[in-house]
Design a protein around this nucleic acid. Structure first.
Length: 306
DNA sequence: CGTCTTTGACCTGCGC
DNA sequence: GCGCAGGTCAAAGACG
């Protein structure tokens, strides 16, 4: 029978348990009709149940995420307060360090003398970084995933900074070449960038940033003009917005743009404060932004692969 | 002519 | 010590 086949194993089971009325055609037909109506109702009920469960699960998840966000904000506030306390307790020490750094920096800039600030951090010059043992250099490394046209073979990631290409190499694990860039905006800036297409998805370009810029972003002024009304309220001392030493403008740009959009849509002050705080926390930590970008890109890659 | 890109050679770290 | 792979240098060419 067609109807029994359509209704699956449960119905087959029901029909087979009562073989006594097999010759009674009318009663069988009535029975089948009843069964089919019942089963249709059952199926729709089950579907409804599944949907309701899914809805509940999603709303629970949403609640959990909201809770996590609130917790993150609270923790961020606590950390911010802690940082402010620490800064207020040790202002002289930091000022001394800054003074020494500035002095060394000026000397290096003006006289172009190499080798005097070898113990300096990532803001030392290229020559220094070449002479120093690689193990002693602790540079901040961040990765940015950028969607690019497959046909576009120029490994250029526009991030607002000025880069000079100094090498290209084909690596073992990836058929597409890897390009090496140095920041050419400031001679003393030791930030390097490696750009390579993803082996898994050639439409994705992976830019790896090493080090921290010790100068303003060439296009920073333009960006800060656009976003200053928002960031002025959100940025705290020490954030990227104020020290402008973020290593990743692409992300900053994306974040700032998205922040603008978010602010346009979210009028309630509480949400606005939350968004601003989140934005501040995101922009103040390049590694965190890189991790977020990596996670998002990975997610996108996963979805495009399916 | 100055700047930027390309590309082969060289250097360095690491595993065997 | 050797080979491999990644990273860097620097000469040559392209381009505005």
């Amino acid at each position: 029978m067609e109807s029994t086949n359509m209704l699956g194993t449960c119905l087959d089971f029901d029909l087979n348990i009562n073989p006594i009325h097999q010759n009674d055609e009318t009663s069988e037909r009535e029975l089948e009709e009843d069964h089919s109506v019942d089963e249709e109702a059952k199926v729709s009920d089950e579907k409804q149940k599944v949907l309701v469960e899914e809805l509940n699960r999603v709303s629970d998840e949403n609640k959990k995420l909201a809770g996590m966000l609130t917790m993150m904000c609270e923790k961020y506030n606590a950390l911010q307060n802690l940082l402010m306390d620490l800064k207020s307790k040790r202002p002289e020490k930091e000022a001394d360090v800054m003074l020494v750094r500035k002095r060394k920096f000026n000397f290096d800039d003006n006289n172009n003398v190499v080798g005097l600030d070898q113990n300096n951090d990532s803001s030392s010059s290229d020559e220094d970084s070449c002479k120093m043992p690689k193990q002693s250099i602790k540079k901040k490394v961040s990765r940015v995933f950028v969607r690019a046209d497959k046909s576009d073979k120029t490994l250029i990631v526009k991030d607002g900074y000025q880069w000079r290409k100094y090498g290209q190499k084909v690596t073992k694990d990836n058929p597409s070449p890897r390009a090496y860039f140095k920041c050419s905006f400031a001679p003393s800036c030791s930030v390097k960038k490696k750009v390579q297409r993803s082996a898994e998805d050639p439409s994705v370009v992976i830019a790896t940033y090493e080090g921290k810029h010790n100068h303003l972003n060439p296009s920073q002024s333009k960006i800060s003009l656009v976003t200053s009304p928002l960031l002025k309220t959100s940025s705290s001392p020490g954030s990227v917005c104020t020290n402008s030493s973020g290593s990743n403008l692409t992300l900053n740009k994306i974040e700032n743009d998205s922040i603008k959009h978010v602010q346009e849509f979210q009028a309630p002050p509480m949400q606005r404060v939350l968004v601003e705080r989140m934005a501040s926390s995101l922009t103040s930590d390049p590694s965190f932004t890189a991790e977020i970008a990596a996670a998002i890109s990975g997610r996108i890659l996963d979805q495009t692969r399916v």
